[in-house]
Amino acid sequence: MSGMDLSVKIGKLELPYPTLMASGCYGSGEEFEAFADLSKIGAVVLKSVTREPRLGNPMPRLVPTPAGLLNAIGLQNPGIDWYLEHEVAKFAQRPCAVIGSVAAFSVDDYAYVTQRLAARDEIAAIELNISCPNVGSEGETFACDPALTGKVVRAVRAVTGKTLIVKLSPNVTDIAAIAAEAESAGADALAVINTLRGMSIDVHAWKPRLGNLTGGLSGPAIRPVAVLAVYEAARAVSIPIVGQGGIETASDALEFFLAGASAIAIGTANFTDPRIPEKIVNELGAYLEARGLRSLRDIVGKANVGFGTPFQYEGDVG
């Protein structure tokens, strides 16, 4: 694997590995330090922080589902004031880049929290979580409407020069339109995708299993949905895409690169085995080496090549 270039550039952010640990799945990295070599991952995306403290959703917050996990944590966090005062300083100790994640319920609050968080040296870049499905409908509204997406990204762009990654929702009709809007509003990169909305019902108790009633689905169950979303977004924009959704192996990761992602994020798979991110990096290197390729950049979006309009029989309509 030596000599393999797995480095990636996302906006101004240069990372030695293309693997990000997805927001909300990896704490601040500290929680996994005993099991995973953080110097072998690209970056940790922190759990989202909001303007005010949030206690989060009532329990239960997790339901295992076939090949997936339904969650509704509800953005539990201590709020930006406390976060800056008590938590951000320790992120400087991480042997990898640390990306802050911002969530909010208004354009003003997105800009306010981003400005304060991005001002800290410990924070290498900002991910804008405009797609959390678990805080009523408000949180996700932003990523479900191109005009609102544009408005919030422009407001945040105005307050920071740091790399801005906008995390999109799969719960939309046309992700390409939203991706294009985010790019033209000033996003440096896109994270595709957040969780899919879902529900699970206890047939003995006759009630939803989650305390929040609905949740967000992650894990291998959503992988094909995520690959398609990356493919469609990649054709609509020229900024880098961080592909995510059910990645467990190097082969899964390669689907995302070939669909057009420049980097990937790993979330739920860390719950199966915290050694997975390092294994993926090693196997990606071996994949490139076996094919005589020098860099991951050589395969990004290559599944697009040769694809025109899908073949149609004469006489078929649409």
Binding site: G27, G56, L62, N71, N270, P274
Partner: peptide, 8 residues
């Protein structure tokens, strides 16, 4: 899910 304090 994680068992180590990462997911709340």
């Amino acid at each position: 899910a994680c068992g180590v304090g990462g997911c709340w």
